[in-house]
C-alpha cells in the first residue's frame, strides 16, 4: 500500500501540483466578478496546462529518485557516443506555441475589457448586467 502511494502519488507530485494550480485558475475564471481578474485566472489556468505537458516530457520525474536525470535536448559531441539521456523535446515545442497563443488571447481579452469599460464605466460583471437590463427596459 505504502509502495503504491509512493509510486503513484508522491513520485508524480508535479502532476498533482499542476492540477491544484489549474483549479485555482478555473475558480478565478468562474467565480470572480471582475473581468480583469477573470483574465488573470485564465492565464494561470493556461500555465498549469503547460506545466502538465512539460512534466510529461521530463525523464527525471518518473524514472527513479536520483538514479539518472535527462539533460537539455542539445546536441553534444561527446554525449552522442556515450548515449546520454535527454528530455523529450516534442512537448516543449508544442508548449512554445501555446505560450504565444496564450499571450495573443490575453491581448484580445484585454482589448474587449477596455472596450467594455468605455461603454459601461465598470469592470464588474454584475454592474454590467444591471446596466444592460436598464437599457433593455428603457428600450421597450
Amino acid at each position: 500500500m505504502i509502495e503504491w502511494i509512493a509510486q503513484h502519488i508522491v513520485a508524480k507530485y508535479n502532476f498533482w501540483i499542476a492540477i491544484v494550480i489549474m483549479l485555482t485558475g478555473l475558480y478565478a475564471t468562474v467565480a470572480k466578478g471582475n473581468l480583469l481578474k477573470k483574465l488573470i485566472g485564465l492565464t494561470i489556468f493556461q500555465t498549469a496546462i503547460f506545466l502538465f505537458y512539460v512534466s510529461l516530457s521530463d525523464v527525471g520525474t518518473l524514472s527513479g529518485l536520483g538514479l539518472h536525470y535527462g539533460t537539455a535536448p542539445i546536441v553534444w559531441e561527446e554525449g552522442i557516443h556515450r548515449g546520454y539521456m535527454y528530455v523529450n523535446p516534442l512537448p516543449h515545442v508544442l508548449m512554445l506555441t501555446g505560450i504565444v497563443v496564450s499571450a495573443a488571447t490575453t491581448a484580445v481579452g484585454l482589448a474587449l475589457v477596455v472596450r467594455l469599460y468605455e461603454e459601461y464605466g465598470t469592470l464588474e460583471e454584475e454592474r454590467i448586467m444591471e446596466k444592460e437590463m436598464e437599457i433593455d427596459k428603457r428600450g421597450t
Binding site: 503547460f50 512539460v54 512534466s55 527525471g60 535527462g70 537539455a72 535527454y86 508548449m95 505560450i99
Partner: peptide
C-alpha cells in the same frame, strides 16, 4: 530547472 530551456526563455 526541468531542462526545457527554450520554453523557459520564451516564458
Amino acid at each position: 530547472e526541468m531542462n526545457a530551456v527554450d520554453v523557459g526563455f520564451t516564458e
